[in-house]
Structure formats: structure tokens, C-alpha cells
Design a protein around this nucleic acid. Structure first.
Lengths: 210, 210
DNA sequence: TGTCTTAGAGAACGACTGTTCTACCGGAGA
DNA sequence: TCTCCGGTAGAACAGTCGTTCTCTAAGACA
């Protein structure tokens, strides 16, 4: 990338500032005024360069059609809070329609850093202190990736069919057995038949508010 | 708030969708096409209602001057990660210049929900498992509000002057004594002279990525 | 039945705005 | 000196876009 001229940096900064102040992009003439430039063609000229450099996108013949690209502008993901998780209480694996209806309810906003671009993410509010061994407290929000697959050592929400309960544990596959390991050394792991265990989701992160 | 008509909901959803797709707001005529409405005046009429209900803001005579308000659209805060915290290692209370230089370094993006509009927020990365009693693990990010004041029961970063160390504990003021309470019942609280304890910050939240 | 309110349709006006064409200027290179 | 090029000016054009005025229609209410 070629280094930007001071004018181009100035225009870029003006666009960002204008967006923060107004909530929409400036017009060419807004930039003319804001950067003390005397002609719209100069702005157009420099915007073409900035677009070529990949710093913004322009939609032809659209008023205020400048969209800033690059840096941390990607915004938030809105994640549905599908329900609560507590020992002995099943979590519904979200189906397409569950998803839609959940949108109406509680949601959290998280940055892309946390979800890392993963699509099927939902959140569960932890009820009770039964997960305290896993450093997860009452009221915490766990970000879950909806999946039926897990790797050794992943922290998962596991559905124990016979026991009819869900626990949040680390999972280890040992032959046709599955070991569900609490994160507290003083607690014993649960061993179960692999057929009896169904992975409902993988924990991506934890958010706690105080 | 009066309940919205289906047309108003439709327009609202179209605006949100258009914004996601294009990065800028639709024009009135975009809404006309997108919602199969036959006149711009109908859109204008409904937009006025939506504006009155506080669901959006319109800037007069500005192309694509619709700004969606309400729900979780407020965008992110960029929080500087000022350093690490580990037992026995002092946290610098951020001064104005520390702040500026830290901006250049690592940052996290968090939604406004977490910071609740509070200004002086910084983050610390937890090193080691010395805070595990407080349900905070190695590598976690603690969101701190920079303050010298704390209320009874707040979780704070406390600087013990004589011992030259910082701990993350619940704080209780008991006369001229201060009780620093770990969050694990099997551990004993630390009692210290009030003059020996300096609150450096209050924990607002914890973010853990797995 | 007549009036008011809500909702929608259609068209026209004028301001807003992106695009483009021509011209000017200074420095680098031949 | 002449030419080319990056950068700048100014102006005109045409399409975009918000606003507003007039009309229509259906339901509520007295």
C-alpha cells in the first residue's frame, strides 16, 4: 500500500468523525466543507484513491454511499439468550424456529473477537452455583457454539440421556466410554457410555457482570 | 408506546436489513421498493410515527439520514488492556498519559451493556491461577473501573502498601480495619489497617475466551 | 348521516449529491 | 524547453432524494 498523503488521512479521519457524530456517512460536499477543500472533484479524486487502497467502499450514484472498511469497525453480533442452564435441567438444542422466536427475547451483544466469526452461537444464563467448579458462577452468561461434535478436552454441554440431565464439563473420549471431567481436582469425573452422551454445544466463552 | 402496525414493523426490519447489507441507511425510495409500498409519502408518514416512538432518528433534508435507535445497536467500546495482574505485582492506576499510550497497544471491544456507560474503564489480563478462588482463571480478562472508592462487598483490586502487593478480593470496611474476603469459603480473609489499603479499581466484569 | 382519524396513493418541487469535463500549476524526466 | 503526471479548482449536468400538497378510502363515533 502506498503511503497516504496528509489530505487523504484528513479525509479518512473526517469520514470516521462524521460517522460517529451523525450515524451516517458524509456527502462529498460535507467533506469539502469539513476539510476546507475547494472543490468536490478533489474529494472525488482522493476518494477514488482511498477506495483503490481498500480503505473504503463507494456505491455508485448513491448519496452518502461511502462505507468505511478496515480496522475494528466490524460491529457487534447479537446473540440470543436461549434460556438458562442448571444441573438437571435440559437445554434445548436450538432449531431453526427456536432461533427465530428467541430473537424476540433477551439478547446480548458481543464483539466479533469473542465469537471469532462462528455462526451458530447462542448464550445461556447460568442458574445456581452448580457450575462453580468450572469457574462459572450464578448469573454468568456462557457463550455456546451449537454443535454435536467435540474434541478431547473441550468444555461442552453434555446431555446424559439416561440421567436426563445436562452438565457443563470437560469431555474426554476413552474408547467407547466418555469421561466428563469437572474442573475441580477434588471432584470425581463421571464415566458414561458413549451412546448415552450427546454433545449439545461447546463453550466459547464466559461473560460475567458484577 | 403504541403497538406498531405490521407495515411499521416491516419498514423497521427493512431498514435494519438494508443497513446490514449495504453499510448505510436506505433512502425513502429504497424503502418504497423494498416494502412494496406505492408512494414515498406513505413511507414518510410511517417514518414520522416511528420517529415519534423513538425507534429512529431522522435528519431533515439529509439523504439517507435515517439512524436506527433503540435495542442493542449502540456499538462497541474499545477498552485498553493496560497490563497483566498477578499476585504481588502492582497494577499502575492509569494516568491520563498512560491511557493515551495504552491505546496504541492491545485493546478489547466490549458492548455498552458490559460497561454500562461508565467512562474510566480499562482491562487487565490475569496471569497465573492465583485468582482462581474468585472464579477468575489464567488468561481471563477483567474489566476494571478506575476508582479509589469502593462500597462494602465490591470486588476490588486492592493495593496493600506494606506488603507491596495487589489482590483481587471482596472488600468490607469494619471500622478502621478492612477485611479482604476471598470468594472461597475455605480460605481465610485478610485483615488490614484501613490506611494500608488503597483501592485501585473495581471489577465490572470478567470475559473468558476458550 | 356527517365528521374526525388513520392509512395510503400519486405527483410535483426543489434541494441534495455524485459525476464529469475543462483548466491550472509545479515538479520530474527527457 | 517540452511533456507527463499528481494534485487542485470551478462549474455544469443529471440523477437521487426528502418534503409536501391533494385525493381517496375505511372505520369509529356521535
Amino acid at each position: 500500500m502506498k503511503t497516504l498523503t496528509s489530505r487523504q488521512k484528513q479525509i479518512l479521519e473526517f469520514i470516521d468523525g462524521f460517522g460517529r457524530d451523525h450515524g451516517y456517512a458524509p456527502s462529498i460536499r460535507d467533506i469539502v466543507k469539513g476539510c476546507a477543500i475547494s472543490s468536490t472533484s478533489v474529494v472525488d479524486y482522493n476518494l477514488r484513491i482511498l477506495e483503490r487502497e481498500g480503505l473504503l467502499r463507494r456505491d455508485a450514484e448513491v448519496s452518502r454511499g461511502i462505507v468505511r472498511l478496515g480496522q475494528g469497525r466490524r460491529g457487534n453480533r447479537t446473540i440470543p439468550v436461549l434460556g438458562q442452564i442448571a444441573a438437571g435441567f435440559p437445554i434445548p438444542v436450538p432449531a431453526a424456529d427456536t432461533w427465530a422466536t428467541a430473537i424476540e427475547g433477551e439478547t446480548v451483544e458481543v464483539s466479533h473477537e469473542l465469537t471469532r466469526g462462528i455462526e451458530d452461537v447462542y448464550a445461556l444464563r447460568v442458574k445456581g452455583t452448580s457450575m462453580i467448579d468450572a469457574l462459572i458462577n450464578d448469573g454468568d452468561l456462557v457463550l455456546m457454539r451449537s454443535t454435536n461434535h467435540a474434541d478431547n478436552g473441550d468444555m461442552v454441554a453434555a446431555w446424559l440421556k439416561a440421567e436426563q440431565e445436562v452438565t457443563l464439563k470437560k469431555i474426554y473420549f476413552e474408547g467407547d466410554q466418555v469421561r466428563l471431567q469437572p474442573m475441580n481436582a477434588t471432584m470425581s469425573p463421571i464415566y458414561s457410555d458413549a451412546a448415552n452422551v450427546e454433545v449439545q454445544g461447546k463453550v466459547l466463552g464466559v461473560i460475567r457482570q458484577m
